[in-house]
Design a binder for these strands. Structure first.
Lengths: 340, 340
DNA sequence: CTGTTAGCGCGTTCAA
DNA sequence: TTGAACGCGCTAACAG
């Protein structure tokens, strides 16, 4: 005989209370371990809760208490990119430490989608937002639109708004990589990069250009290609550069997609003696098992997420209005040898 | 002059209504585009909403309507693993199509954490759950504990509970890979795998063992190592196998971590003439740019997520109680040549 | 077309 | 120690 109420209607505190002949308050108190309740009653309540499989409704509770939802919104451009999934790992890790959960939003790099996603997350009551912006327009992330919900930008600094951000040392990392190539005697260095409209695109190019300048080398436009981070485009661009009579003796790539493209172009290239060196931003798994040596600018993507989430929780906890902070994650230059 | 109410208290519908001298119902109707409201009033309300930056509280709305939260919980063992982040991509993709969001939960492969995470997600009102189980104990995912919340297991079939699941063709894929090695003349094939306690571990071993049996080859225990999927352990195991006087002429690895370990072991190995062949489950980026040829069992991890989410929404929409379904994602065998 | 009443599930407040 | 009334923000159901 099934004495449980209709299973399509979820159990409420009242169901538990009625079965015990007590008020909902008694159940509520027992559930939250609040003092001021008889130990015997407590046990009776908890036993019934377990028997019935009752679960409190955190949303209703939050509505009543007005407390934090313990929910963080994470808005990324493309979760398929390992950088962003690692970022998510870091955010999640810190959130769990603070008893919070992560709600995901993917924008497909579309600013309009970003607006909608941010709005939806706010309407769902997130306590804070970590956003990898899809464009330079951050107006929908400003204080007047978000009221008191804190935001942290990742991988890109705020434009015209006052919020925290976590950046990667795009400039320094790229400069170091370019210097390494110069140290090895390269003077004609090609750059396969992202469009200047992306923060990372302009910063990484700046690192490249400054390293050349410091070595007294002029930037040769024929050796620079600034397209979207697509490995097919990168491959074509690299191929074209390498077909020049005075082609670059080294390539510097602005992200892992470009590195893959360059690797493909180098692989396809007829072996005409002098090998072309390669360095790139972002580490690559198995990089030291490739058929050619590769120098990479490596950094901890999960750390970006951890830092962003930490800034969020710190701000949440602080009563005094902190002024906007900026954290930069360091990069390391790694030389991957070739096997044998 | 700031005429807005105290910003720490979020705006409610009442704030909007009072400013307009209308009832909250009028605001509510205007906001939801419900018919039965004057066009002029509607515009007035919407204008005020925009001016104030009011945002409805979806949680309160959901509490009142009792409608779905349009929220799916995704519970994975380890988001850092590309397989699971790709799974998340697929789940998110389908959710967005249905107007839902994804709430993340990571278990670190700990069954106790899994229980807690699942409970928390349910208390937060998710409409459904996609779970990559951390163990064989699925009792906390059964109908009596979840009431009406549908669950789909990913990568592992349900044990003692009746729920949908999406699997990868672990058995068929591994058998195909092993056959390929046998076709190439190998008779001594080493297996670097996962523990039998994992579903994928036992299925992939089963594929290996059957392929051998079909070729009339007995399984040699010295050629089998079944440890956790850690590349360091895999490397040691591979090294030990290759040190045998009659060492395997080919290795078959049960997942990408094992493949990496095997690659490392093969790289370190003194070149004693005959090269050792390698095949493995899971594709590897840049596999065709390695220093040795690699055969992989490839499949679309995002498709696993898409299928899981689809099953969830289908079940949600269907009134009749569907019986448990099982979807298997196909695998493809890919031969990655070595460059040049 | 608009407003009033009531109540979703829960917790605060105050009285018993 | 326990319970009743009330309200969190919103909307269904029913007035007018």
């Amino acid at each position: 005989m099934n004495t449980r109420p209709d299973p399509v209607t979820p159990l409420t505190m009242r169901d538990v209370a009625e079965r015990l002949g007590v008020s909902t308050m008694t159940v509520s108190r027992a559930l939250r371990g609040q003092r001021g309740i008889g130990e015997a009653t407590r046990q009776r309540v908890l036993a019934e809760v377990a028997a019935l499989g009752y679960r409190p409704n955190k949303l209703a509770r939050g509505l009543r208490t007005g407390g934090p939802s313990e929910l963080i919104g994470l808005v990324v451009t493309n979760l398929a990119n390992p950088f962003y999934s690692q970022l998510a790992v870091g955010v999640e890790e810190v959130c769990v430490r603070y008893g919070a959960r992560v709600m995901l939003g993917s924008t497909s790099e579309d600013p309009d989608v970003e607006r909608d996603v941010v709005t939806d997350l706010l309407e769902r009551g997130v306590d804070g937002l970590v956003v990898v912006p899809a464009s330079h327009d951050h107006s929908h992330l400003g204080a007047e639109r978000l009221r008191d919900t804190p935001v942290v930008l990742a991988a890109s600094p705020p434009m015209d708004i006052d919020v925290d951000c976590v950046l990667v040392d795009d400039f320094g990392g790229t400069r170091a990589a370019c210097r390494r190539l110069i140290e090895r005697g390269h003077r004609r260095i090609g750059f396969l990069g992202l469009p200047p409209s992306l923060w990372t695109g302009s910063e990484r190019f700046r690192g490249y250009a400054l390293a050349l300048e410091e070595a007294g080398i002029a930037v040769d436009e024929r050796y620079v290609s600034r397209h979207r981070g697509d490995s097919t485009l990168a491959r074509e661009a690299a191929r074209a550069m390498l077909a020049l009579p005075d082609h670059p003796t080294a390539l510097l790539t602005a992200n892992n997609r470009n590195t893959v493209g360059a690797l493909l172009a180098l692989r396809d290239r007829p072996d005409d003696g002098e090998p072309v060196a390669l360095a790139g931003f972002d580490d690559i798994e198995l990089a030291d098992m490739l058929h050619l040596p590769l120098t990479v600018v490596s950094y901890d993507a999960a750390e970006v997420g951890r830092a962003a989430a930490s800034l969020l929780f710190e701000r949440q906890r602080s009563t005094a209005p902190l002024h906007p902070r900026r954290v930069t994650i360091a990069t390391t230059l790694i030389d991957h040898p070739v096997p044998r």
